[in-house]
Design a protein around this nucleic acid. Structure first.
Ligand SMILES: [Mn+2]
Ligand SMILES: [Mn+2]
Ligand SMILES: [Zn+2]
Ligand SMILES: [Zn+2]
Lengths: 135, 135
DNA sequence: TATCATATTTGTAATCGTTACAAAATTACA
DNA sequence: TGTAATTTTGTAACGATTACAAATATGATA
């Protein structure tokens, strides 16, 4: 998905595009590294010295509620965020800690057993060692 | 998987079968409800009044390290545990909070893009509304 | 522009799940 | 039985997140 005007995109999703919100969202679409709150804060506070970590928390929570970002829980002690809301898989390398994206076609997965359930979110992730860390 | 003798099963996996460890593991195989640390503790402390929550933390961490249980991270604020170590899917109901098991055949999923990665763990979970909560 | 109401941001304190640690209890073995 | 090693326990510390209220910014109105 291409987002040309971030402020307009936020407005279209019922979010008032404050300066901080625009900057946080821009960070997410320009850095597809599935950052944590702390990563977003540390990266932005250099350019926005008055930025508060609470604002980053509030902003990401708002984005998630409005469904313009995805919350990724792979480790129990690190919540990551992703502006790519399409259904896709994640691979977390246990060595370099990097989280990779990969396409996954879940249409082939048999969900007959829960066919009467309403599915709102799909999450598919793997853990292991990435190509680079195998040597 | 059927486990007849829990103490022996723990031994076979390199775990000394202390009373507390046996009771925690028995709880997990008798209650396939994907409990949190707190749930396990609250359920067992009634029968084992001297039980410490730290012991539950230590025990579950040990079990996970020895690969006889799976750690489930669906919400960022609740870590759950599962004695069923087979590859299977989880569905969390956003209304009643229950976590359901379902069979999932991941052999049909195309993982070509990460074919050079070493995969150690598969996690597939969905969120939504369960059959009962739909009314 | 000045005024006022509303929304957002900020900094600090509180909360809560988890971990660190050392003492107490238990177990294994000589 | 005595002794060392292991496990359990209780408390303190830690760290990520949330609650909260003051400060700031925004937007409408006169
Ligand atoms: Mn992603
Ligand atoms: Mn399960
Ligand atoms: Zn790696
Ligand atoms: Zn339900």
């Amino acid at each position: 998905m291409e987002i040309e005007n971030v402020a307009q995109y936020l407005k279209n999703n019922g979010i008032k595009p404050s300066y901080q919100r625009v900057r946080v969202f821009e960070y997410l679409i320009n850095n597809k590294n599935h950052p944590t709150v702390d990563t977003v804060f540390k990266e932005l506070v250099g350019e926005i010295p008055t930025l508060s970590k609470t604002t980053v928390y509030n902003t990401l929570k708002l984005f998630a509620k409005k469904n313009i970002i995805i919350v990724i829980n792979i480790e129990d002690n690190e919540t990551r965020y992703d502006a790519d809301t399409s259904v896709h898989g994640h691979f977390k390398c246990e060595k370099c800690r990097k989280v990779y994206d990969f396409d996954v076609d879940l249409s082939k997965v048999d969900l007959k057993k829960i066919s009467n359930f309403i599915i709102n979110e799909y999450h598919f992730y793997l853990k292991g060692i990435c190509e680079k860390c195998r040597e």
